[in-house]
Design a protein around this nucleic acid. Structure first.
Lengths: 195, 195
DNA sequence: GGAATGACAGATATTGAAATCTGTCAGCTG
DNA sequence: CAGCTGACAGATTTCAATATCTGTCATTCC
């Protein structure tokens, strides 16, 4: 895949980095590899991304943002708050599970990247809990939920379902019975939201 | 029964193994080290524990059993089911947090051991959720909780609070605000149990 | 002048030979 | 005889030499 002779944009570097990570894995993917894939010297890559860590964080952010934007639609969906909380949580679970099951190696690669990108992951989690908070607040305003602080409740929801979206539990997502466990968890949490 | 100071019992081997693990860490603690600490040849250790993995599992089980027996008292405590669920969950969190904070290296050592001892950990989790199931069932019988299946609810409770007892989250237990997060989580879950 | 290069120093990773460990077992010892 | 030993083979780990990588920057190129 020879690179087009267009300008070397940050975007193109990120795409090349994803490809290199996909091919070599997180341990062996180097900045030199990325430069080689683009047909430039590695010094050039450093003009755009000051360090390898910054480059990896940018790739990680891209990956996480894809999930976040997928879930955004459940926030504004035209359904009751209970259904939207359920859909949102199920959507997150399904998105993660699909990625982990479909290409386990790539998922493992990004899981490793995420471990080294604490700030990016933190912002991602803040965005997700922010989405959840909106739905919970709508439920409180509609009188369906009775929690006192939507943001606190949303964070609890997110943490309680960690087992179904935290990459470190990916192994469990294949086991039979997870579906039922997920349903039971969401049922219990929704009962809690209603009070 | 022969005097413990002379006979080489499984018990003495386990104690020596704990000591070696404490001193060397999980990566460098060898069966040869254990034998040396006991003043015997390593072949002797293998008479009692067929493999290194079995020896480590036994040590891990011992460690986990200590936590389980600490929590058992909350099951039979003379208080309402709500308070007992709260106490039990708080007791688990506190026990783990105290261990992790008090001797981080030792905690990390046992966390590594636990990763390699899937069956032992599974049995431990079954025991803990069993304890929780008893309390939940008592609550249902007393009409305080309205869940349909105490065992399913107990497992959900355990998983939902994973962030506050799973060793992989130990780093978070030191951060300010965890206490509040834990309280919010338990409040939400208890609301769910009541229905 | 802005973009890219490539040589360079220090840090990190790889490699293969040597050392150590795991698990077995024939034989010793009390 | 029951418990223990220590030598052994194959697997794993250590260690030091070697190679590669990261990040910088003076220089080149358009």
């Amino acid at each position: 895949m020879p690179p087009t002779s267009e300008a070397l944009t940050a975007e193109r570097i990120l795409e090349a980095t994803e490809e290199v990570l996909r091919r070599h894995g997180p341990a062996k993917a180097t900045v030199v590899d990325v430069a080689r894939a683009l047909g430039v010297s590695h010094g050039t890559v450093y003009r755009h991304f000051g360090t390898k860590a910054v480059l990896r964080e940018a790739v990680t952010k891209r990956w996480l943002d894809r999930t976040a934007s997928t879930l955004a639609r459940f926030v504004t969906e035209d359904r009751g708050p209970e259904d939207r909380v359920r859909d949102w949580l199920a959507g997150l679970f399904e998105a993660k599970r699909k990625k982990a099951g479909g290409d386990p190696e790539l998922f493992a690669t990004y899981s490793v990247l995420a471990e080294d990108a604490g700030d990016v992951v933190g912002a991602h989690i803040d965005e997700l809990t922010g989405q959840l908070t909106e739905i919970v607040r709508a439920g409180v305003d509609a009188g369906v939920f009775t929690v006192s602080d939507p943001a606190v409740a949303a964070r609890a929801l997110f943490q309680a379902t960690g087992r179904f979206h935290d990459p470190s539990y990916a192994r469990e997502w294949q086991k039979p019975g997870v579906e039922a466990e997920f349903e039971a968890m969401v049922d219990l949490l929704l009962r809690g939201l209603r009070g």
